[in-house]
Amino acid sequence: MIRLNNIVATYTTTRGEVSAVDGVNLEIPTGKIIGIAGESGCGKSTLLKVIYGDLIYPLALKTGSVQYGFDSFGQEVTTSDIKEYWFKRISYIPQSSMSSLNPVIRINKQFTDHLDPSTDKAKVLEDVRAYVQKLDLPPEAIDAYPHQLSGGMRQRIMVAMGTFFNPDIILADEPTTALDVVVQKGILLLLMGLQEETKSTIFFVSHDMGVHYQITHKMLIMYAAKVVEFGDSDIIFTEPLHPYTRMLIESLPTIGDDHLRTGVSGRPPSLWEDLTGCRFAPRCPLATELCQTTEPEFKEYRRGHFAACHYAENTYQSSEIAILYDHHPQNQSPE
């Protein structure tokens, strides 16, 4: 179990501090692919940084900590000492493989330069050569310079780097965004296969709900620095509890359905404002007086399925939401 204990992460700016992750309290089961979804600026990447322990100025962990669910010398590893386990027990797959590899150094050197100086690097590289073949890469690929490989091969190299040391936790920040769909599919299948084999926990950030649907076991939906829903992906995609989640899913096209996709109109609130009540209320077709004034509690409604909505228990049909949505004052066309 990975525990996120009341995490508040702030960025220091010239205007003051702003909380990009504001009070996240969660227990995440290990051995699953956890999808993190939400609009730009909702705090997905910040949450990822906090989990990775990459807290450098201007980002700081105001309160809270992460417990990683593994011990070292009998002590549970938390945020304060996770750095020592980077690329040993927790690893990271960046978004852009082109800019994440040093252009003037061979890949094999970049594969091993973070290892302890006492390690037998030649031996490690022998294993790496065998390992990359499993990832559909020629073993010579690791002796190349980054520019000599194609975009897809480079991203496979990044996956290989992130998974070779067999970490417990892998963080992937939109690892397929820069790739074309065919290559994207290959990388996603590769990640799924590796996870299946090693039973590691993958945090997968993307704003592509289609990709989340394909590969995740659990979904974590974020909105304006808060987690609004967390649960099993198959449940979330069929019976979401939070209207925001529902609207995100509604925006996905399905084959044979040719009616116009509405999307979620409006914009998330500025985190600089004084936010009272439910942060989604201004855009929510179901919002009432209560939502404007009181912040909903993030709680478990069904087994393993959490949400932060006053009306999570009301089971609206999507058609009803659509009607409510059309009558929402914000969406009325000005006449």
Binding site: Y52, Q110, D113, H114
Partner: peptide
Amino acid sequence: GYVTFARLKGTPSRTIMNS
């Protein structure tokens, strides 16, 4: 990006600076 990634890999600061 490669400097950030090297740092996140846990590459020693000296190596990042030089290589």
